[in-house]
Amino acid sequence: MDIVVCGAQKPFVRGGAEQHQENLVAALETAGHRVDLVRLPVAWEKGRLFDSPLAWRMVPVDADLVIATNFPSYFVQHPNKVVWLLHQHRGAYDGFEAGASWSDFAWDDVSLEEQRLLTEWDVAALSEARTVFSNSGVVSRRLARFNGLDSTPLAHPPPLHEVLHPGEFGDYVLSVQRQEENKRPHLLVEAMAHVPSPVRAVMAGRGELLDQVRRHVEDAGLAGKVELPGFVPDADLVELYAGALAVVYVPEDEDYGYTTLQAFYAGKPVICAADSGAVLDWVEDGVTGLVCDGTPEGLAAAIRRLADDPALAQRLGAAGRERIADLSWADVVARLTAP
C-alpha cells in the first residue's frame, strides 16, 4: 500500500511526537509499504489556532491510506483515513481545565467560543476517520470526555526497545526525561534529601530547567547523591537502565512517556505519582511499580522501600517486563492498516 503519515511540527522543535512519526514510518516500511511523511507547521496560540487545521483541510493527499497522528494533522481529508492520536490541542482542553500556565485560554467569551469551535471541528474531523486509535488510555479518556468520541488505545514499543536489557539491581534510581516543568524534576531532587546513602539518583536528559535543577542540587548539598549528566548517548543510557535499582518517573498528567516502557524492557520497577496520567496505564501499585502521592516525602519513602527490599524490586521489574512482552511494531502496523 501507499501510505502517507501526517504529522504536525513546530519548526526547530524536536520531541517525542516527531520521533514517534519517524518510527511509525520505519515500521510501515519494514512491513513492505511505500510510505511518506507529510508535515505542516502548527501554532498553538489562540489567534492562530485554526490556521493549521484549515491548511490541513486543503492539502491534497493521494494515497491508499492516510495515518494522521497529532493535532492538527487529523484534519487532513481522505476517504481512507485512520487516526492514531498522540494528543489533541492540550491548551484548549485539559491544559485549560487544569489552569496550566502554558494554556492561553481564559474564562472569557472569546476563549470559550474558540474552545467550542475547536471541539466541533475536532468532532467533525475525527468522525470522518475509519478508525480512531489513541496513544494511551489518557488520550482516549480525554477524547471521550471533551468530544464524546470513542477510541481504542494502541501502545507501541519505545525507542531502544531492541537493545534494552535487564541487569544487576544497583544502588541508584534512574530518571530519564527532558528537564521541563511538567516532568517535575525538582521533586526527585527534594526527595533525595530524605533518602539515606548509599542510594543515589541519576537524572539523564537535557531541557530548559537543567541549569536550574543543577543549582538546586548544589544549594541543597546533594552533589554526591544526585547526578545530572545532561545528554547521555544511547549506548550509555541502555547500561544505565540495566544497572538501576528502579526508575523514577513522576510527570504531571503525561500523555505517554517512553520512560515507563523503557524501564519495563530493562526489567526495572517504575515509581510514579498518582497524577502522572498515561504512566498509570502501565504502573500498577505493588505489581509493576510503586505509585506515590507526588510529595518529596512520599517519593522518598517509595525509593527507600525498594532499596531496603531488592527482592521486591526484582519481582516488580519482572512483572513489568512481562507486561510489555506482547508489544511490537508489527502488531501496531497490522492494526493500523487492517481493512
Binding site: W107, S111, L112, R116
Partner: peptide
Amino acid sequence: ARPVLPFTRAGLRRV
C-alpha cells in the same frame, strides 16, 4: 445554533 459540548457548557455557565 452551534454545538456546545458539556465541557464548554460548564465554562459558559461559570462565566
